[in-house]
């Protein structure tokens, strides 16, 4: 068993192919929840959790149900329903265990369902050929977890900059969304530097 490949998967999903900054997935929550660091951290952990769970369930369902009955064309419908149920579950658990976190995340928890990064990672796991690969489930879990960590990293970086931006002087027309996009562009430019990394 070659350990190097697992390290590569983790590193590449976090830095080189960061879901937000180089694959441009999950932009809506990235811009929506990155106004303050504490809510960014909460959202980040929720996404890591949901992404890992979603990777696991979609992989198992794809491999043992969809392929078995030869209905792989139903992939999109099945995956989105699985993700929606997982999000519902996480929402109920957080609501019971930590009402403060539930208050902070507010409307964004249900929005994880329509976070394209979550469906994206589920589809990418299948497209990467993990279904037929050796130790495919482990690779899938790592890719899901790494994707979540990468998302959280981008979200926290962005929130840190935006907190500073509140006190900065910005031209009237650039305030709000435009400056956030330009910021995200600069962050993503910085992440391009990782693309030259050879593992």
């Amino acid at each position: 068993m070659d350990l190097k490949i697992y390290f590569t998967i983790l590193l590449s999903t976090i830095f080189i192919n960061n879901y937000v900054l180089s694959r441009t997935l999950g932009i809506c929550p990235f811009l929506g929840v990155s106004k303050r660091i504490d809510s960014a951290i909460g959202m980040g952990f929720a996404v890591i959790f949901v992404m890992t769970l979603a990777s696991f369930f979609t992989y198992v369902i794809y491999k043992y149900v969809l392929i078995f009955f030869n209905i792989t064309y139903l992939r999109t419908i099945v995956f989105i329903l699985v993700i929606a149920s997982i999000v519902q579950l996480v929402e109920m658990v957080i609501n019971k265990t930590s009402p403060a976190l539930y208050q902070a995340l507010g409307i964004f928890l249900p929005l994880i369902t329509t976070n394209c990064a979550v469906l994206g990672v589920a589809v990418l796991n299948i497209d990467s050929g993990f279904v037929t690969a050796e130790f495919g489930l482990l690779k899938t879990l790592l890719q899901g977890f790494g994707g979540g960590v990468g998302f959280t990293l981008a979200l926290i970086l962005m929130a840190g900059i935006r907190e500073r931006l509140e006190i900065a002087e910005i031209p009237e027309n650039l305030k709000g969304m435009p400056i956030s996009f330009i910021l995200a562009g600069l962050l993503s430019l910085a992440f391009l530097g990782f693309a030259g990394m050879t593992i």
Partner: peptide
């Protein structure tokens, strides 16, 4: 080349939103 990669998308969309704000204001 950076413009057809992710950073270009972010920055040009940011500039488009800026232009739109300018016209509306």
């Amino acid at each position: 080349t950076a413009l057809i990669m992710a950073p270009g998308g972010f920055i040009i969309l940011g500039l488009m939103l800026w232009g739109m704000n300018k016209i509306n204001n």
